[in-house]
Amino acid sequence: MRRIMVGVKRVVDYNVRIRVKPDNTGVITEGVKMSINPFDEIALEQALRIKEQGLADEVLAVSIGPADTQQQLRTALAMGADRAILVQTDAAMAPLSVAKVFQKIAEAEQPFLTLLGKQAIDEDNGQTAQMLAALLDRPQATSCSKVDIADGKATVTREVDSGLETLEVDLPAVLSVDLRLNEPRYVKLPDIMKAKKKPLDIKSVADYGVAEGAAFKTVKVDPPPSRQKGIIVKDVAELVGVLKQKGLV
C-alpha cells in the first residue's frame, strides 16, 4: 500500500480576531470558530492530487488534539482522505512529543511521504516536520511550493529568503508545505455524507508511549504592545512634509 500521511491540526480559524485572556494565561478559545490549520489543508490537497495521479493508494489524516478535533478530521475525510487517526488528548503537547507520536504512527503505517504544514497558525512554532524527519532519520524539505514525485524520489521547490531552492530527496521523506503549493478544493455536501462512513480511529497519546505535557512553562501571555494612533494627511505635499520632519526621506 503506497500511503501518504498528512497532519491535520485543529486551530483557531485564521479570520478570528485573537484576544488574550484577562488573567494572561492564554488566548480566548472558548466559543471561537475552529478550523483545519490552513497549511494542513494544502498538505492534504497535495496528498489527494498525488493519489489522483495514481502515485499513491491511500491518504491517512492524523491529528493530535481534543475530542472535538473529530470535526476537522471529518472535514479532511470529506475532502478525500481515506481514513483518519485522532490521538485524543486535552493536554498541551510539546512539539517534540507531537513529532514522536507522528514517528510512531509512521513506523506502523510506513507512509512513503508525510506532508505537514510549514507552521501551525496558533503556536507558529514551525518545527514538527523537521523534528519528525530527524526522528525518522529521513530527508526533509520545508516550505515547499512545488512537489514532484517520481522513481522513488521527490523533487521539491522550497520558498527561501533568497528566492526558490530546488532539492531532490529520496523517499520516504517528510515535507512541510507553503501557501503557494496549491489551492485546496471545497468540500461538497455528498462528500460530507460519505465521510461519515470512513474509518476514524481514536487513540491515546499513551498508546504510542509518548508523554503528555508541554515542553516549556507558560509564564504569561500578553497582548502585543499597541501602536500610537497615527495621523491622516490630506495630500502628497503634507505627506512629504511630515516625512522630512521625521527625517525619513
Binding site: 510539546a94 518545527q127 527561501v160
Partner: peptide, 23 residues
C-alpha cells in the same frame, strides 16, 4: 529565525531531544 534557521534548528533540537523555542 530566517528560512535557513527555521529549516535546520528544529532538526538540531530533535537530535538533542528537546523542543525548540521558536522566534
Amino acid at each position: 529565525s530566517t528560512t535557513f534557521g527555521k529549516d535546520v534548528m528544529p532538526r538540531v533540537a530533535a537530535l538533542l531531544g528537546v523542543s525548540q523555542v521558536s522566534d
